[in-house]
Design a protein around this nucleic acid. Structure first.
Lengths: 132, 132
DNA sequence: AACTTTCGTTAGCCGTCGCTTACTGTGGCG
DNA sequence: CGCCACAGTAAGCGACGGCTAACGAAAGTT
């Protein structure tokens, strides 16, 4: 069973409404903003932190040596870019990486890489000796 | 035949020395610099331009409405990040996207996405109703 | 109601970024 | 050699980004 199949199954077993909620809550990913967001090392660390686990802002901030304010601003940037989702629980705000957004970013690079590989393979076929 | 198999074949038909040259010439990709490089829209356009085709600096600059100088600086940033390779032919400098670097970037996001998907799949298995 | 916890927001500082304008460098050609 | 086409480099400017410090806001707790 491939990873993609697992995802397909996961979506399949959720109800239609739940799926609507899911795509609804997630503020559509902005590719430009997303790439700018992950260009920052600390934001990348935050993203890896909440890729597999949901965490409150405080717990996230503990992992860094900058102010909680700074982390809060990073979270704001990530949220605006659609890279993370926010869920409230009392005074806490729980964050997690948006699987859909990560998938879109992944696809963007996949396509770019694909173009590059195509060219490379073409050159090899035309003249193996010229292959870089 | 999958894409990965094509790549494997392409590498296989090149000689060992050629492969050494290939990895030698390419200034090891810097993930941090690479992500900062593709955060800029114009640099991303440049990258897509030379993903499947090798182009001289002048031809690249023609596609934009900024100065050739600006494009030259963008190319410098991309090269420093290891995202592109440079080959000289007379006074011309031919650029192309580094397939290896694009692959590494792709892998980085692949892993991040993978972590996120794992979590999502786990939640569904544990309690489908709780799936976001 | 007063206080605490958890967290976001604002103002302002300083460093970095992308751009233009000028200048410099280099290879080919008469 | 002198010149031209093709490029990178340097200086300097306006804009933007990330940080801290101080403040604001909301949900529990006593």
């Amino acid at each position: 069973m491939t990873l993609t199949q697992v995802v397909a199954y996961a979506y399949a077993v959720t109800t239609e409404n739940e799926q609507l909620d899911r795509t609804d809550v997630m503020g559509e990913m902005d590719l430009d903003a997303a790439l700018r967001a992950i260009a920052e090392p600390r934001r990348r660390e935050i993203l890896t932190l909440i890729a597999a686990t949901e965490l409150p802002a405080g717990k996230i901030a503990e992992h860094f040596e900058v102010t909680r304010s700074a982390v809060s601003q990073h979270l704001h940037v990530l949220k605006d870019a659609g890279m993370i989702t926010e869920r409230r629980d009392g005074t806490r705000r729980l964050y997690r990486a948006s699987e859909a957004a990560l998938g879109e970013l992944r696809m963007f690079l996949e396509e770019l890489w694909h173009d590059s590989v195509d060219r490379f393979a073409r050159e090899v076929v035309e003249d193996p000796k010229e292959a870089p």
